[in-house]
């Protein structure tokens, strides 16, 4: 079935013992199939072209992993990973990393990733910064009383100060958010917020049967944050954030 000579796109790795459900089509419309070795199953598609349109294929990649994760535990592989044929999937992924992958599959089985993202209400945040930062309110005053052309550097300085204050608040708010989830997750990854008004972006590894209980700290945090930060609570996701090196180095130190 496979053209063993062609390149293959790799979506993720699952246990060969549990049959992952595969969608009809993956990247570039190609079928999705499995390369099996030593109890591990890599989910792959044959790739004819050397060019992928990222916006379309990100979606395809995501759909394949979502579909498979609905029926089994999947270790997602980084987007746009292409190997030189089935042989390379075995020689460069499944064989050399067999122990680690097997252990990861074992430790992540029955667990999902939940995400809690905090987004600032920009107006509330800026008001707070003006109110609490004398340098900002003074400079704001000064800028407002001078013609635009004459205040160019003051405005840059003002924006820089504001930006710095936002950074400080991000640090503080992330710390507060992390504290709210202590004891509720097996592992936590704090990502740098990627959206511009992001306050924090946290990923939690949670046992599937604890997902319902996880709502309690989310709501408590939301109440504590008031209208400053709006929470988005997403999931369950495959454990994207928990498959890299650091996690593989040991069991979570708290639960």
């Amino acid at each position: 079935m496979a053209d063993a000579e062609g390149n293959v796109y790799v979506y993720g790795v699952a246990s060969a013992a549990e049959r992952a459900r595969l969608p009809d089509a993956g990247v570039a419309g190609a079928g999705v199939r499995i390369v099996e070795h030593d109890g591990l199953a890599a989910l792959v598609s044959d790739l004819d072209s050397g060019t992928l349109v990222a916006a379309r294929e990100v979606r395809a990649h995501w759909r394949v992993i979502e579909a498979a994760a609905a029926s089994t535990t999947v270790l997602p592989v980084r987007f746009a990973t292409v190997l030189a044929g089935d042989r390379a999937v075995v020689d460069q992924l499944l064989e050399p990393q067999a122990d680690r992958l097997t252990e990861l599959l074992r430790s992540l089985a029955g667990r999902v990733q939940l995400a809690v993202k905090g987004e600032y209400d920009e107006e509330v945040l800026l008001r707070e910064i003006v109110r609490e930062t004398p340098a900002v309110s003074a400079l704001r005053e000064r800028v407002s009383t001078r013609p635009e052309a004459a205040s160019y550097y003051d405005r840059i300085r003002l924006g820089e100060l504001v930006s710095g204050e936002i950074g400080r608040r991000r640090t503080r708010d992330q710390r507060m958010a992390l504290a709210a989830f202590e004891g509720h997750a097996e592992s936590i990854v704090a990502n740098e917020p990627r959206s511009a008004n992001g306050a924090f972006d946290l990923a939690f590894l949670v046992s599937r049967d604890k997902v319902d209980a996880f709502g309690a700290p989310v709501r408590a945090l939301s109440e504590a944050l008031g209208d400053r930060i709006r929470l988005r609570y997403l999931g369950p996701l495959p454990p994207y954030s928990f498959v890299d090196e650091q996690r593989a180095q040991g069991a979570p130190s708290w639960a």
Binding site: V77, F79, L83, A88, R194, L237, Y240, D244
Partner: peptide, 22 residues
């Protein structure tokens, strides 16, 4: 919602084939 996660996270394989991503 998950695009950063998909682009940033996941298993990394060293010996990959380079493809162009438009």
């Amino acid at each position: 919602d998950v695009i950063e996660v998909i682009l940033d996270k996941g298993l990394v394989i060293d010996a990959y084939v380079r493809v162009s991503l438009i």
